[in-house]
Design a protein around this nucleic acid. Structure first.
Lengths: 159, 159
DNA sequence: GCGTGGATGTTATAACATATCAATACACGA
DNA sequence: TCGTGTATTGATATGTTATAACATCCACGC
């Protein structure tokens, strides 16, 4: 079973629940969860790690859902804008949101050895970053908070 | 005069001081500040904003210091590893370190309108990110902390 | 001189992302 | 149900960012 937050969990239920939440959110807000978009989200959820746009594309292509880069990027744009997925800037890769429903400023812990990614939350406007922004008169609209290092399993392997 | 931290300053002295500090650090630690590396740092300092690798490369090429991508990427790798420059992951661009000397975990305020970038500091292992990492048993080696939004000047323009 | 290791020169290609325009589907009011 | 406007998809091309691989050079210590 793959890791989420570096811990095992019921993956099938996890996928199912998140998809259902995403469908519900779309119904509420008039967004359109089309076949490609749904499948893209399923793929990200199933992998439970950060996937490159072209990794996603190759899966979609195998399934006949489109073979050109814009297919993947459009689906990813939709998912990111809707809050169903996040871009990991440090990896140029994308991951399904692990906290769907919460209006959140996500933060990520990225293992450099096994490439697994855990999602957590920050209070971006509090803490030192928020203070620095206020001092500078800067208005924060979006934050990228990514920590790279070693997850527990890979620390053990190294030892 | 360009902006640093969204404020005016004595740019010539700023370049000169930082270069001198970088040279000193190289002498101390046995790093080699070669002509291409020095010039790359000068260019980043002179621009005082985030430059793409190919932006840097085109300046270097004009000066006969190399015309192929690896020239720029090697210089940038050196500067980043030495702590003389930082990569802005959200922009895939590079900027000279504004706090050379301090052993720091930098954070950036990035204006989406004018693309200026201010460097500040964080205490990565404190705050919520550090707490989340400790809870997860994750060892942080490097942090990417980038806030995107509007700088004071661009807020005024928008109004 | 000679070996060693870092730095550079050079070619090629991998990996990531977007512009553009035509075609199609879909929701919604007349 | 029929248009009409908008969102989505299809398709082609291209732009942008980054690295692999290998040859060569050069400073330095022996």
């Amino acid at each position: 079973m793959p890791a989420i937050g570096f811990e095992r969990h019921d993956h099938t239920a996890c996928i199912h629940d998140t998809l259902a939440k995403a469908e519900a959110r779309c119904a509420e807000s008039g967004l359109r969860m089309t076949p490609v978009r749904r499948r893209a989200l399923e793929i990200l959820l199933a992998e439970h790690r950060a996937l490159g746009a072209y990794d996603l594309l190759s899966v979609l292509a195998d399934e006949g859902l489109g073979s050109q880069p814009p297919v993947a990027y459009r689906a990813l744009d939709f998912l990111v804008k809707a809050g169903f997925a996040h871009k990991i800037e440090a990896l140029n890769a994308y991951i399904a949101c692990a906290h769907l429903g919460a209006d959140h400023a996500p933060a990520f812990l990225i293992c450099r050895a096994c490439k697994s990614v855990a999602e957590t939350d920050t209070a971006a406007t509090q803490g030192r970053l928020g203070a620095a922004a206020r001092d500078a008169g800067f208005v924060i609209e979006h934050t990228v908070i990514e920590a790279q290092g070693l997850c527990p399993a890979c620390q053990d392997d190294a030892a």
